[in-house]
Design a binder for these strands. Structure first.
Lengths: 337, 337
DNA sequence: AACATACCTGACAACGTTGTCAATATCTTA
DNA sequence: TAAGATATTGACAACGTTGTCAGGTATGTT
């Protein structure tokens, strides 16, 4: 039924090893032989059996993207992963991971321990899960973290510069006249969230704008969090003239809340986000945000992983990429009192 | 280094075949033997080598989700696929497919012909690509289409009822007093787009609302298309009081355009979409839309595919699921003249 | 007691490829 | 011309599993 390397060898009158050499572009094949084999391959429509190759080489040629819930950020990562997927010899497998499901744990454990995947790309918030970390250590499977919530210097990761990005945006708001700027914070024990908050604080300090702890609003970095925090926060005696969302999702939630409260953006209040997700340019007004270069981040992460898998030493194992401001309609100069 | 079935057999003092039986839960293994083998497996930490199993069974235990560009709809599909992915024995591979890239074609062709995937789930607009269709036919690989742009009765697919959904929404708008309702159309040669247009027309007819061809605006079903069409269309002499976007993306584009033109929604004009994408509840005002039950669609599609792969006859090979209205703030009664 | 039947087990081939190594042919150099 | 280097090829084992089939041992039936 299916054409194997033996059929090709018989057709081309040579050994299977020679066919293998031609298929894998190895040296030491006479030009005439190579052509004869090529013809045989074409004539018979031979395609190598990947399972056999994988067995004998004990490699799966699969890398796995590990995601938690499918939020917008995760979608953005997937978009890029898909875009570049066809450039590699590796196949790309996606796997969700919910630590609460034991089936989910089992699946993941099988994936790694049965060596169905050669390497992993880990997206937040999977990097902070203890079970996964344990599994990664004991199995010794290579992996790279993308924009981890927490990170240590010896694990490969690629991330945007949270501190610098938050600093830039805060600075910009200050230069537009704002001095009461609320910050929509994420979980207080996550590095990403902490770094962004530090960037925010540093800019305030640099421009001698007093820091007000009441302007740091917990948002969990998601839509509902941003919405609720804004509803609550805008009721304070001395509300801010700008809201800087530590994530686009939270900022979009803030936008929604403000619309609901009929507080015009940006006339009465400015809103900014962090992430530059695809939908942040489809809100009204367009969301000013810090571009977290997801595409480059993913590209670099996959590059590092492929280097590791090929036993090449990657140019760098920890990459922090600078962020840029993307100003749209949602941010403007501070309104007169 | 790695523990194989032989090691387990030696430890448990039995043949490799018996270990295989235990691992695969086959009958005809004495209880005592089974326990002895289980102990050996646990003691040695044995995990079967999947590549070997795949080779001997000539199956890959992988299903592939084929996507074109990573739009929001595609992300929604992926989300659900991920959600349910850990329930299967199959691994889930994602692959983008851009017919213009020859590398993309090669990758896909290899994926199928090298039998790296056992089956495919095909998302729009991949289903209308001739190269892919040719490949699917010649390779005989099983596949299911999700909400195909075009479809024939003999190919497995799962989709929402475009006609019925569009009918319902148009009817609702009419009942809210609208009789000049613009329809943001997709490509005119795609079944999905045509069906939604027919549903729209049918409702108009039923309620004796005259059909005006000038109110069918080409939008390509995306944000820019919806935006441009709305900008253009609202400049006409007798503009509509409602815009029904054939897709949420187009409707969100329309919302943006209307905000830009300072035409209040829903006071002056109502806007509705089709799809109920995650972000359609994060727009302001919340987008009224037709819920396309993506989650169920994906679930059913995967069920069908798994049935086919297991040589079970699926309960049904073509499934058309009813749609429901989700009314949010973007639609209201027709304003007085 | 003879025989059928169900249960249990293991030897061995097969899956389709790549790696190792030896054998041969051809070329280069002194 | 001989010796050594280089190019070319193929035989065969190995990868780790599952499928086939034959053989053995209890158990039940006539």
């Amino acid at each position: 039924m299916t054409v194997t390397i033996k059929d090709v060898a018989a057709y081309a009158q040579c050994s299977i090893k020679t066919v293998s050499r031609v298929v894998n572009d190895e040296s030491y094949v006479a030009e005439a032989t190579r052509l004869r084999v090529q013809d045989a391959i074409n004539a018979l429509g031979y395609v190598p059996n990947i399972s056999a190759r994988r067995l004998v080489q004990s490699k799966s040629y699969v890398i796995c993207i590990l995601l938690h819930e499918a939020g917008f950020y995760q979608s953005a990562v997937l978009s890029k992963v898909m875009d570049i997927g066809y450039q590699f010899d590796y196949d790309i497998l996606i796997q969700s991971y919910f630590p609460v499901h034991s089936r989910s744990k089992n699946k993941l454990s099988g994936l790694i321990r049965e060596r169905r995947v050669d390497g992993l790309v880990i997206t937040p918030p999977c990097d902070v899960d203890p079970f996964l970390n344990e599994l990664l250590i004991t199995s010794r499977v290579p992996y790279v973290q993308i924009t981890p919530l927490n990170r240590t210097g010896n694990i490969p990761y690629v991330t945007g510069d949270d501190y610098q990005g938050a600093y830039l945006m805060t600075e910009r708001l200050i230069l537009m006249g704002h001095w009461r700027i609320a910050f929509l914070s994420g979980p207080r024990n996550h590095r990403t969230s902490i770094d962004r908050l530090y960037g925010y604080k540093a800019a305030l300090e640099m421009y001698r704008v007093p820091f007000d702890a009441d302007l740091v609003w917990d948002s969990l970095f998601n839509f509902d969090g941003g919405y609720n925090a804004t509803k609550l926060g805008m009721a304070m005696d001395n509300p801010p003239t700008a809201i800087f969302g530590g994530s686009d999702e939270a900022a979009i939630g803030a936008l929604y809340a403000l619309q609901e409260m009929k507080i015009p953006v940006p006339q009465k209040i400015s809103v900014c986000g962090f992430g530059n997700l695809p939908q942040s340019q489809q809100t009204w007004p367009g969301l000013s945000t810090v571009d977290h270069p997801v595409e480059i981040i993913v590209e670099r992460a996959v590059e590092i992983l492929l280097d590791i898998l090929a036993n090449r030493e990657p140019a760098s194992r920890q990459i922090v990429l600078p962020c840029q401001l993307v100003m749209r309609g949602s941010a403007g100069t501070k309104p007169p009192n």
